[in-house]
Amino acid sequence: MDATNPGEVDGFDRLRAFLRRLYYGRTRAALRFQISVLAVDLVIIAFFVASPVLRDRPSFLWVDYGIAAVLAADVLARGLASNSLAGWARRPTVWVDLFILATLLFPHSLANLGFLRILRLWSLSRSGFIWQPLERRGHAAWREVMEDIVNLVTFLLVTTGFVYTFFFRTGSGIEGYVDAFYFTVATVTTTGFGDIVLPGIWGKLTSIAIMIVGIALFVKLAQALFRTSKVVFPCPQCALQRHDPDAVHCKACGHPLKIPDDGD
């Protein structure tokens, strides 16, 4: 005999439908909710950026656990709002958020991995949630450029946190964090002023890795900025998504296209 209460099942389904409307709906209330969630996320990311130099403050743990509660609620709500819980649980962005949550719940045990919390910015970008307002205003073509910028900023901030944690943290405070950021930017851009260097063989290997990954991200961003812009318009026949703004035929299958002008 099935002991499941139909009322409880219906209530659970209604909750999921309600959360789905909030996170992905287009009503005025849903848009206000999405903007509020995005604003809270940006404030949390700002805390993550500053957390290496705030870690020794008396109020740090209170803020840390408060953010953990907010992040846990958001992760749970996004999971319930998804069409498939199993598919949602397999997403890399979800695993990143769960790892970030672990660093918040165990700030002392995982203190040296706290700089990885900034990956929250990357997970927001990959989830697409952060780009919904941009796409609703007809600027979907800029999404790739903005994603490349977010990837570069995330890399710079994560690398700065790593360099600060393992090379500059001892007794350095805000000055050490600025030195770590300065070193990261100088290394990524291959400027290499030489006034700040990382000691030892691990310092040299770290510098090499920063230069290789940083140059690759800069090149990808430059390609997105300067190559011919594309518009997002699915081909009715082959579903190719991106085309030249003046294209009349799909370059993949030759099917006629009717791409609307910006003023249409």
Rank of each mutant, 00 (worst) to 15 (best):
M1G: 14
N5M: 00
G7D: 11
G11M: 03
G11C: 02
F12C: 08
R20K: 11
Y23M: 04
Y23A: 04
Y24L: 01
R26A: 06
T27V: 01
A29V: 12
R32P: 03
F33D: 00
Q34E: 15
Q34V: 04
I35P: 00
D41R: 13
F47I: 09
F47A: 11
V49K: 02
D56R: 13
W62R: 08
D64P: 03
A69T: 13
V70H: 06
A73D: 13
A77F: 10
L80Y: 01
A81G: 02
N83Y: 07
S84G: 05
R91I: 08
P92Q: 03
V94N: 08
L98W: 05
L98K: 01
I100F: 02
A102V: 06
A102W: 03
L104V: 05
L105V: 08
F106L: 15
P107V: 11
P107G: 10
L110K: 08
R117D: 04
R120G: 05
L121D: 07
W122I: 00
W122P: 00
L124P: 01
L124T: 01
S125W: 04
S125A: 15
S127E: 15
S127F: 12
F129W: 11
F129D: 15
I130E: 02
W131L: 06
E135I: 10
H139S: 12
H139Y: 15
E144F: 12
M146N: 12
M146Q: 11
I149S: 05
I149R: 00
F155G: 08
L157M: 15
L157G: 06
V163C: 04
Y164T: 03
F166K: 13
F167C: 09
F167D: 02
F167T: 05
F168R: 11
T170H: 14
T170P: 12
G171C: 05
F181R: 01
T187N: 03
T189S: 14
T189Y: 00
T190S: 06
T191S: 09
T191L: 15
T191H: 08
F193L: 03
D195H: 10
G200Y: 04
W202I: 07
G203C: 01
K204N: 10
L205Y: 09
T206Q: 00
T206W: 02
A209S: 12
A209I: 10
M211G: 14
G214H: 03
I215H: 06
V219F: 06
K220L: 13
L221S: 04
A224C: 01
R227K: 12
T228C: 01
T228Y: 05
K230H: 12
V232L: 03
V232K: 02
C235Y: 10
Q237M: 11
C238D: 10
L240A: 13
L240T: 15
Q241M: 07
D244I: 07
D246F: 07
L257M: 09
P260V: 09
G263F: 08
G263Q: 08
